[in-house]
Amino acid sequence: MVKYILKRIGYMALVMLVVTTITFFLLHAIPGDPITAMVQDLPEETRQNYLAAYGFDQPVGKQYLLYLRQLFTGDLGQSLRYPGRKVADIVANYSPVSALVGGIALLIGVALGLACGILAALNRDRWPDRVVMVMALLGTTIPTFVIASLLQYALTVTWPVFPTTGYKGARYLVLPAICMCVGPLATYARYMRSSMLDVVNADYILTAEAKGLSEGRIVMKHMLRNALLPCITMLCVSVAGIFSGSFIVESIFALPGLGRYFISAISDRDYFVVLGLNVVLTGIYVCSILISDILLMLLDPRIRTGVKT
C-alpha cells in the first residue's frame, strides 16, 4: 500500500514536470510578448530594455532551464503585469476567496444535485424524473455569464436586494454562490441518476429484495452506498477545481479570486503567473486524484484486492 502510494507520488511529480514543460513552450510559442500585450504605445528601445530586464531576450531553451532552476528553489516568480506581486502571494491571498465561494457553491450544488439524482432515479420516467432532467439539461447548457448577468440584474437593479459587486461580507457571496452552484447541481443530478439506475438492476439488489429487506433499507444501505462510489472520483476533482475559481463569475461580481488572475494572465502573456498558477493547480489536481483513488480503495474492497499490498 505504502509502496503503491509512493509510486503514485513519483508519477505525480513527473506529470507536473511534463505539464510545466508543455505550458512553458506553448506559452512562448504564442506570438507577442508581455510588454507588447500590456502597453501598445511603446518605442522599440524601451521594449528591448524591458525584455532584457526580465531575460526574455535569451533563447527559449535557456529561459526554460532558468525557470526550472528557480522552480526547484521553491520560487514561483513575480507577476509581470502586476510588478511587485509574487505568484506565491497571489495564490495565498486569492485562492481562499475562490475556494470559499466555490466551496459553498459546491456544497449546495452537490447536496441538492445528489438528492435530485436519487429522486429522479427512484421515480424513473415519472414526472419528478422529467422535471429534474429538464432542469439539469438547462443547468448544464445555459452559460454561466447568462445566469450571472440575469441574476445580477434581477436582484440588484430590479429588486435591489443584494449588492452589485465587491467582496465586503457574506451578502456579497450570495449571488456568486448561486451562479456557481448551478453547474455542479445539474452535473451531479445527472450523474447520480445514472449511477443509481446502474445499481438498481444489479444482482445484489435482487438478492436483497429476495431476502425480504425493506425498501428503505435497500435504498439507503445497498443502492446508495454503491451508487455514490463513482461520484467520489468526481467530487475530488470538483474540490480541486474550486481553487482555480471562475473567471466569469469573478469578473461579473468583482470578486478578488484566482480565476480572473489565471485567465487574464494568459492574454497579458504574464508568463510567470500562468506557469506558477499552472504548477500549483496541477499539483492540487493530481493530489485530488490520488486522494480519490485512496478513498475508493478504502471504500471498495474490489479495488483493494487489485493492488498488491
Binding site: S149, Q152, Y153, T156, P160, T165, G166, F253, A254
Partner: peptide, 18 residues
C-alpha cells in the same frame, strides 16, 4: 474605485446607483 471588467455588471452598477 470599483474594479468591474464586465460591461453588463458596470451598467447594472450605474443603473442602481452603486
Amino acid at each position: 474605485d470599483q474594479i468591474i471588467p464586465d460591461e453588463s455588471a458596470q451598467m447594472a452598477s450605474l443603473e442602481n446607483g452603486s
